[in-house]
Amino acid sequence: MFKSKNKSTIDSLIGASTHIEGNVHFKGGLRIDGRVKGNVVAEAGEPSILVISEQAVIDGEVRAGHVVVNGVINGPVFSSDLIELQSKARISGDVHYKALEMMNGALVSGKLAHDQVAEPVLKLAASN
């Protein structure tokens, strides 16, 4: 009867004309079209998605499960699930990821660091 909330749902928006000075902490999904001078951090241990649009600029650290970048990040990025670097992505800082998708045109000025996981990436179903 009731559908569970999809983990890729955007709950909040920072509009293009919005400038924030200070850290942003969020849960669920966040899309940034404006500018943030501070860290953008998702709640640890919870599914999260962060979308950084083409006109967005973040000056600070970014931490989220799923990160989609098409704007500018000046600082390190930590993605515990997947990071998607779209064609206009510009990152000045190290990128730490579990899985990475990078489109032609995306630029990273820093190290790409694959964070190893303790559990195997491929899980096989056990037969009864």
Rank of each mutant, 00 (worst) to 15 (best):
4 S>R: 09
76 P>G: 10
1 M>Y: 12
99 A>S: 14
2 F>D: 09
42 A>Q: 08
124 L>M: 12
32 I>M: 04
109 S>M: 09
13 L>P: 01
13 L>Q: 01
87 S>K: 14
8 S>Y: 15
101 E>R: 11
70 N>C: 08
1 M>F: 12
78 F>D: 13
37 K>L: 12
23 N>V: 01
40 V>D: 01
85 L>G: 01
51 V>C: 04
86 Q>M: 10
24 V>T: 06
69 V>A: 03
46 E>W: 03
46 E>P: 00
51 V>K: 11
43 E>H: 08
104 N>I: 06
52 I>C: 00
53 S>C: 11
111 K>Q: 15
104 N>S: 10
53 S>V: 03
5 K>D: 11
48 S>I: 04
48 S>T: 06
5 K>F: 08
125 A>P: 02
106 A>R: 10
123 K>M: 08
27 K>H: 08
102 M>Q: 15
84 E>R: 13
96 H>V: 02
39 N>R: 11
34 G>V: 04
50 L>H: 02
20 I>R: 13
78 F>C: 04
91 I>N: 06
30 L>F: 00
26 F>N: 00
101 E>Q: 10
66 H>I: 14
85 L>R: 02
5 K>C: 02
38 G>W: 04
42 A>E: 05
14 I>Y: 01
97 Y>E: 09
76 P>Y: 03
16 A>F: 04
60 G>Q: 02
